[in-house]
Amino acid sequence: MSQFSSELKRIIWVLAAFGVLAVVTPLLDDYTQTIIMRALVFAIMAMSLDILMGYTGLRSMGHGVYFAFGAYSAAILISTMKVTNLLAVFGVGLGLSALVAAFLGFLAIRAVGVYFLMITLSFSMVVWGLAYRWHTVTGGDNGIAGVIPPPIFGIPLTNPVAFFYFTFIIFMICLALLYLLVRSPFGKTLVGIREGEARMKMLGYNTWLHKYLAFVISGTFAGISGTLWAMLNRFIAPTDVELVTSVEALLMVALGGPATLVGPVIGAGIIMFLRYWVSTFIERWYVILGATYIITILYAREGILGKIEAFLAQRKARGEADAAISQVQEQPEELRT
Protein backbone atom coordinates (compact mmCIF):
# COMPACT_ATOMS: atom_id res chain seq x y z
CA MET A 1 0.00 0.00 0.00
CA SER A 2 1.50 3.33 -0.99
CA GLN A 3 1.83 6.20 1.41
CA PHE A 4 -0.37 8.41 -0.72
CA SER A 5 -3.42 6.19 -0.43
CA SER A 6 -3.05 5.74 3.34
CA GLU A 7 -3.03 9.52 3.66
CA LEU A 8 -6.12 9.72 1.46
CA LYS A 9 -7.78 7.09 3.61
CA ARG A 10 -7.05 9.17 6.66
CA ILE A 11 -8.55 12.27 5.07
CA ILE A 12 -11.67 10.37 4.17
CA TRP A 13 -12.00 9.11 7.71
CA VAL A 14 -11.65 12.59 9.17
CA LEU A 15 -14.11 14.05 6.68
CA ALA A 16 -16.57 11.28 7.41
CA ALA A 17 -16.32 11.90 11.16
CA PHE A 18 -16.95 15.62 10.72
CA GLY A 19 -19.72 14.87 8.23
CA VAL A 20 -21.46 12.81 10.90
CA LEU A 21 -20.93 15.66 13.36
CA ALA A 22 -22.47 18.15 10.95
CA VAL A 23 -25.53 15.99 10.38
CA VAL A 24 -26.06 14.77 13.94
CA THR A 25 -25.45 18.00 15.88
CA PRO A 26 -28.68 19.85 14.92
CA LEU A 27 -30.64 16.76 16.01
CA LEU A 28 -29.17 16.86 19.50
CA ASP A 29 -30.60 18.92 22.32
CA ASP A 30 -29.69 22.59 22.46
CA TYR A 31 -27.21 22.33 25.29
CA THR A 32 -25.21 19.57 23.66
CA GLN A 33 -25.14 21.73 20.54
CA THR A 34 -23.61 24.59 22.47
CA ILE A 35 -20.96 22.26 23.91
CA ILE A 36 -20.06 21.06 20.42
CA MET A 37 -19.85 24.66 19.24
CA ARG A 38 -17.55 25.55 22.13
CA ALA A 39 -15.39 22.54 21.37
CA LEU A 40 -15.15 23.57 17.70
CA VAL A 41 -14.17 27.11 18.60
CA PHE A 42 -11.49 25.94 20.99
CA ALA A 43 -10.42 23.32 18.47
CA ILE A 44 -9.46 26.14 16.08
CA MET A 45 -7.31 27.61 18.83
CA ALA A 46 -5.76 24.23 19.65
CA MET A 47 -5.02 23.50 15.98
CA SER A 48 -3.39 26.89 15.55
CA LEU A 49 -1.22 26.19 18.58
CA ASP A 50 -0.36 22.79 17.15
CA ILE A 51 1.37 24.53 14.23
CA LEU A 52 3.70 26.14 16.73
CA MET A 53 3.90 23.46 19.38
CA GLY A 54 3.55 20.22 17.46
CA TYR A 55 5.09 21.03 14.10
CA THR A 56 7.66 23.70 14.96
CA GLY A 57 8.43 22.58 18.50
CA LEU A 58 7.79 25.99 20.07
CA ARG A 59 5.67 25.62 23.18
CA SER A 60 3.76 28.86 23.54
CA MET A 61 1.93 29.95 26.68
CA GLY A 62 0.72 33.08 24.95
CA HIS A 63 -2.05 31.88 22.71
CA GLY A 64 -4.60 33.64 24.88
CA VAL A 65 -3.15 36.89 23.52
CA TYR A 66 -4.50 36.49 19.97
CA PHE A 67 -7.64 34.89 21.31
CA ALA A 68 -8.08 38.03 23.41
CA PHE A 69 -7.50 40.39 20.49
CA GLY A 70 -9.94 38.46 18.32
CA ALA A 71 -12.56 38.35 21.06
CA TYR A 72 -12.24 41.90 22.33
CA SER A 73 -12.12 43.45 18.87
CA ALA A 74 -15.35 41.62 18.01
CA ALA A 75 -16.97 42.69 21.29
CA ILE A 76 -15.95 46.32 20.91
CA LEU A 77 -17.00 46.50 17.26
CA ILE A 78 -20.36 44.80 17.75
CA SER A 79 -21.40 45.91 21.21
CA THR A 80 -19.80 49.33 21.61
CA MET A 81 -19.51 50.57 18.03
CA LYS A 82 -22.63 48.79 16.70
CA VAL A 83 -20.94 47.43 13.58
CA THR A 84 -23.34 45.13 11.71
CA ASN A 85 -21.03 43.83 9.02
CA LEU A 86 -19.81 40.43 10.14
CA LEU A 87 -17.07 40.22 7.55
CA ALA A 88 -15.67 43.52 8.77
CA VAL A 89 -15.71 42.19 12.33
CA PHE A 90 -13.81 39.08 11.28
CA GLY A 91 -11.48 41.13 9.13
CA VAL A 92 -10.54 43.42 11.98
CA GLY A 93 -10.16 40.53 14.45
CA LEU A 94 -8.00 38.62 12.02
CA GLY A 95 -5.92 41.61 11.01
CA LEU A 96 -5.41 42.75 14.56
CA SER A 97 -4.28 39.37 15.87
CA ALA A 98 -1.98 38.98 12.86
CA LEU A 99 -0.47 42.40 13.57
CA VAL A 100 0.00 41.64 17.24
CA ALA A 101 1.56 38.28 16.42
CA ALA A 102 3.83 39.98 13.88
CA PHE A 103 5.00 42.40 16.54
CA LEU A 104 5.37 39.89 19.37
CA GLY A 105 7.09 37.46 17.01
CA PHE A 106 10.04 39.83 16.76
CA LEU A 107 10.50 39.60 20.49
CA ALA A 108 9.72 35.94 21.01
CA ILE A 109 11.29 34.05 18.12
CA ARG A 110 14.85 34.74 19.24
CA ALA A 111 14.19 32.57 22.30
CA VAL A 112 13.82 28.80 22.44
CA GLY A 113 12.62 26.17 24.90
CA VAL A 114 11.71 27.36 28.35
CA TYR A 115 12.71 30.94 27.50
CA PHE A 116 10.22 31.01 24.69
CA LEU A 117 7.64 29.68 27.13
CA MET A 118 8.42 32.43 29.63
CA ILE A 119 8.32 35.24 27.05
CA THR A 120 4.99 34.13 25.65
CA LEU A 121 3.68 33.68 29.19
CA SER A 122 4.56 37.27 29.94
CA PHE A 123 2.68 38.38 26.80
CA SER A 124 -0.44 36.67 28.00
CA MET A 125 -0.13 38.34 31.40
CA VAL A 126 0.30 41.74 29.74
CA VAL A 127 -2.77 41.29 27.58
CA TRP A 128 -4.82 40.05 30.51
CA GLY A 129 -3.73 43.17 32.40
CA LEU A 130 -4.77 45.30 29.45
CA ALA A 131 -8.23 43.72 29.37
CA TYR A 132 -8.56 44.05 33.12
CA ARG A 133 -7.22 47.57 33.57
CA TRP A 134 -8.15 49.50 30.46
CA HIS A 135 -11.75 49.69 31.55
CA THR A 136 -12.81 52.62 29.37
CA VAL A 137 -12.33 50.35 26.36
CA THR A 138 -12.65 46.80 27.65
CA GLY A 139 -15.14 47.35 30.45
CA GLY A 140 -12.47 46.10 32.88
CA ASP A 141 -13.54 43.35 35.21
CA ASN A 142 -17.16 43.73 34.12
CA GLY A 143 -16.37 42.79 30.55
CA ILE A 144 -18.47 43.58 27.50
CA ALA A 145 -21.93 42.11 27.11
CA GLY A 146 -24.32 42.16 24.17
CA VAL A 147 -21.96 40.73 21.55
CA ILE A 148 -24.82 39.49 19.36
CA PRO A 149 -23.56 38.06 16.07
CA PRO A 150 -24.79 40.17 13.15
CA PRO A 151 -26.33 38.36 10.15
CA ILE A 152 -24.14 37.09 7.33
CA PHE A 153 -25.46 37.27 3.75
CA GLY A 154 -28.90 37.90 5.21
CA ILE A 155 -28.84 34.73 7.34
CA PRO A 156 -29.53 35.57 10.99
CA LEU A 157 -26.87 33.98 13.17
CA THR A 158 -28.97 34.42 16.28
CA ASN A 159 -30.53 31.10 15.28
CA PRO A 160 -28.52 28.39 17.09
CA VAL A 161 -28.51 25.96 14.15
CA ALA A 162 -27.38 28.69 11.75
CA PHE A 163 -24.65 29.66 14.18
CA PHE A 164 -23.58 26.05 14.49
CA TYR A 165 -23.16 25.68 10.73
CA PHE A 166 -21.41 29.02 10.59
CA THR A 167 -18.95 27.88 13.27
CA PHE A 168 -18.62 24.49 11.62
CA ILE A 169 -17.84 25.95 8.19
CA ILE A 170 -15.23 28.29 9.64
CA PHE A 171 -13.74 25.38 11.55
CA MET A 172 -13.55 23.26 8.40
CA ILE A 173 -11.95 26.12 6.46
CA CYS A 174 -9.35 26.54 9.21
CA LEU A 175 -8.72 22.80 9.28
CA ALA A 176 -8.30 22.66 5.50
CA LEU A 177 -5.97 25.67 5.39
CA LEU A 178 -3.85 24.40 8.25
CA TYR A 179 -3.73 20.94 6.68
CA LEU A 180 -2.50 22.41 3.41
CA LEU A 181 0.04 24.39 5.40
CA VAL A 182 1.53 21.41 7.19
CA ARG A 183 1.57 19.32 3.99
CA SER A 184 3.33 22.07 2.07
CA PRO A 185 7.12 22.31 1.78
CA PHE A 186 6.83 25.14 4.33
CA GLY A 187 5.22 22.76 6.81
CA LYS A 188 7.87 20.14 6.17
CA THR A 189 10.53 22.76 6.83
CA LEU A 190 8.91 23.51 10.18
CA VAL A 191 9.14 19.84 11.12
CA GLY A 192 12.74 19.93 10.01
CA ILE A 193 13.40 22.86 12.32
CA ARG A 194 11.77 21.00 15.18
CA GLU A 195 13.96 17.96 14.61
CA GLY A 196 17.23 19.79 14.10
CA GLU A 197 17.40 23.49 13.60
CA ALA A 198 21.17 23.53 13.12
CA ARG A 199 20.91 21.08 10.23
CA MET A 200 18.20 23.12 8.56
CA LYS A 201 20.39 26.17 8.87
CA MET A 202 23.26 24.22 7.33
CA LEU A 203 20.99 23.29 4.44
CA GLY A 204 20.48 26.98 3.78
CA TYR A 205 17.04 27.52 5.25
CA ASN A 206 16.29 30.83 6.92
CA THR A 207 14.98 29.18 10.07
CA TRP A 208 14.26 32.45 11.83
CA LEU A 209 11.92 33.52 9.04
CA HIS A 210 10.18 30.14 9.01
CA LYS A 211 9.60 30.22 12.74
CA TYR A 212 8.47 33.82 12.58
CA LEU A 213 5.93 33.09 9.84
CA ALA A 214 4.66 30.04 11.73
CA PHE A 215 4.24 32.26 14.79
CA VAL A 216 2.21 34.86 12.86
CA ILE A 217 0.04 32.32 11.07
CA SER A 218 -0.63 30.50 14.31
CA GLY A 219 -1.60 33.75 16.06
CA THR A 220 -3.93 34.74 13.24
CA PHE A 221 -5.92 31.51 13.48
CA ALA A 222 -6.14 31.85 17.25
CA GLY A 223 -7.66 35.28 16.63
CA ILE A 224 -10.43 33.69 14.58
CA SER A 225 -11.32 31.41 17.45
CA GLY A 226 -11.41 34.42 19.81
CA THR A 227 -13.84 36.27 17.54
CA LEU A 228 -16.11 33.23 17.40
CA TRP A 229 -15.89 32.74 21.16
CA ALA A 230 -17.07 36.29 21.92
CA MET A 231 -20.05 35.86 19.60
CA LEU A 232 -20.89 32.42 20.92
CA ASN A 233 -21.06 33.61 24.53
CA ARG A 234 -22.26 37.06 23.49
CA PHE A 235 -19.94 38.24 26.23
CA ILE A 236 -16.25 38.65 26.94
CA ALA A 237 -14.47 39.30 30.23
CA PRO A 238 -10.84 39.14 31.39
CA THR A 239 -11.44 35.69 32.91
CA ASP A 240 -11.83 34.37 29.35
CA VAL A 241 -8.40 35.54 28.30
CA GLU A 242 -6.37 34.89 31.42
CA LEU A 243 -3.34 32.64 31.51
CA VAL A 244 -5.52 29.58 32.11
CA THR A 245 -6.91 29.89 28.58
CA SER A 246 -3.43 29.71 27.11
CA VAL A 247 -2.49 26.79 29.33
CA GLU A 248 -5.68 24.97 28.48
CA ALA A 249 -4.93 25.26 24.76
CA LEU A 250 -1.52 23.79 25.48
CA LEU A 251 -3.09 20.90 27.36
CA MET A 252 -5.60 20.26 24.56
CA VAL A 253 -2.72 19.79 22.13
CA ALA A 254 -0.80 17.58 24.55
CA LEU A 255 -3.87 15.50 25.31
CA GLY A 256 -4.96 14.95 21.73
CA GLY A 257 -1.55 14.46 20.21
CA PRO A 258 0.86 17.14 19.00
CA ALA A 259 1.71 17.44 15.31
CA THR A 260 -1.43 15.65 14.18
CA LEU A 261 -3.80 18.62 13.70
CA VAL A 262 -6.80 16.37 14.35
CA GLY A 263 -5.43 15.34 17.75
CA PRO A 264 -5.85 18.83 19.26
CA VAL A 265 -9.42 18.81 18.00
CA ILE A 266 -10.02 15.63 19.98
CA GLY A 267 -8.26 17.19 22.97
CA ALA A 268 -10.50 20.26 22.76
CA GLY A 269 -13.55 18.03 22.50
CA ILE A 270 -12.59 16.03 25.58
CA ILE A 271 -11.84 19.05 27.75
CA MET A 272 -14.99 20.88 26.74
CA PHE A 273 -17.05 17.75 27.27
CA LEU A 274 -15.61 17.38 30.77
CA ARG A 275 -16.02 21.05 31.64
CA TYR A 276 -19.54 21.55 30.34
CA TRP A 277 -21.13 18.13 30.50
CA VAL A 278 -19.49 16.01 33.16
CA SER A 279 -19.30 18.96 35.55
CA THR A 280 -23.10 19.06 35.68
CA PHE A 281 -23.08 15.60 37.26
CA ILE A 282 -19.87 15.57 39.25
CA GLU A 283 -18.84 18.59 41.21
CA ARG A 284 -15.24 17.43 41.38
CA TRP A 285 -14.76 16.98 37.66
CA TYR A 286 -11.32 18.51 37.96
CA VAL A 287 -10.24 15.22 39.50
CA ILE A 288 -11.31 13.44 36.34
CA LEU A 289 -9.48 15.99 34.22
CA GLY A 290 -6.35 15.55 36.34
CA ALA A 291 -6.57 11.79 36.08
CA THR A 292 -6.96 12.06 32.31
CA TYR A 293 -3.72 14.02 32.12
CA ILE A 294 -1.83 11.66 34.36
CA ILE A 295 -2.95 8.70 32.28
CA THR A 296 -2.01 10.53 29.11
CA ILE A 297 1.44 11.33 30.43
CA LEU A 298 2.06 7.83 31.75
CA TYR A 299 0.63 5.75 28.95
CA ALA A 300 0.16 7.93 25.89
CA ARG A 301 2.84 10.56 25.69
CA GLU A 302 2.23 10.98 22.01
CA GLY A 303 -1.35 12.00 22.82
CA ILE A 304 -4.59 10.12 22.37
CA LEU A 305 -4.53 10.22 18.58
CA GLY A 306 -0.87 9.25 18.55
CA LYS A 307 -1.68 6.26 20.75
CA ILE A 308 -4.52 5.15 18.51
CA GLU A 309 -2.35 5.43 15.42
CA ALA A 310 0.48 3.56 17.07
CA PHE A 311 -1.96 0.83 18.05
CA LEU A 312 -3.36 0.57 14.54
CA ALA A 313 0.12 0.54 13.03
CA GLN A 314 1.16 -2.18 15.44
CA ARG A 315 -1.87 -4.28 14.56
CA LYS A 316 -1.23 -3.80 10.89
CA ALA A 317 2.39 -4.75 11.31
CA ARG A 318 1.41 -7.83 13.26
CA GLY A 319 -1.15 -8.71 10.61
CA GLU A 320 1.51 -8.43 7.92
CA ALA A 321 3.89 -10.47 10.00
CA ASP A 322 1.23 -13.16 10.49
CA ALA A 323 0.53 -13.14 6.78
CA ALA A 324 4.22 -13.52 6.09
CA ILE A 325 4.49 -16.40 8.54
CA SER A 326 1.50 -18.21 7.12
CA GLN A 327 2.90 -17.64 3.65
CA VAL A 328 6.09 -19.24 4.77
CA GLN A 329 4.16 -22.15 6.29
CA GLU A 330 2.18 -22.63 3.10
CA GLN A 331 5.33 -22.94 1.13
CA PRO A 332 6.28 -26.46 0.07
CA GLU A 333 8.53 -28.33 2.42
CA GLU A 334 11.52 -28.41 0.14
CA LEU A 335 11.73 -24.61 -0.15
CA ARG A 336 12.12 -24.07 3.56
CA THR A 337 15.57 -23.65 4.97
Binding site: D30, T34, D141, N142, T239, Y276
Partner: peptide, 28 residues
Protein backbone atom coordinates in the same frame (compact mmCIF):
# COMPACT_ATOMS: atom_id res chain seq x y z
CA UNK B 1 -15.87 32.28 35.09
CA UNK B 2 -18.55 34.38 33.40
CA UNK B 3 -18.32 32.51 30.09
CA UNK B 4 -18.90 29.24 31.89
CA UNK B 5 -21.84 30.77 33.74
CA UNK B 6 -23.40 31.63 30.38
CA UNK B 7 -23.00 28.03 29.26
CA UNK B 8 -24.46 26.70 32.49
CA UNK B 9 -27.40 29.08 32.22
CA UNK B 10 -28.03 27.69 28.75
CA UNK B 11 -27.81 24.21 30.18
CA UNK B 12 -30.34 25.03 32.88
CA UNK B 13 -32.70 26.64 30.38
CA UNK B 14 -32.39 24.18 27.54
CA UNK B 15 -31.86 20.90 29.28
CA UNK B 16 -33.48 21.31 32.68
CA UNK B 17 -36.15 23.68 31.33
CA UNK B 18 -35.97 25.88 34.42
CA UNK B 19 -38.61 28.53 35.05
CA UNK B 20 -36.09 30.86 36.65
CA UNK B 21 -32.39 30.84 37.33
CA UNK B 22 -30.32 32.55 39.98
CA UNK B 23 -26.67 32.90 40.58
CA UNK B 24 -23.39 34.55 40.00
CA UNK B 25 -21.16 36.02 42.65
CA UNK B 26 -19.04 38.79 41.16
CA UNK B 27 -20.34 41.60 38.98
CA UNK B 28 -19.02 40.32 35.61
Amino acid sequence: KPALAVAKAQKLIQRDKVHVFLGGLLAP
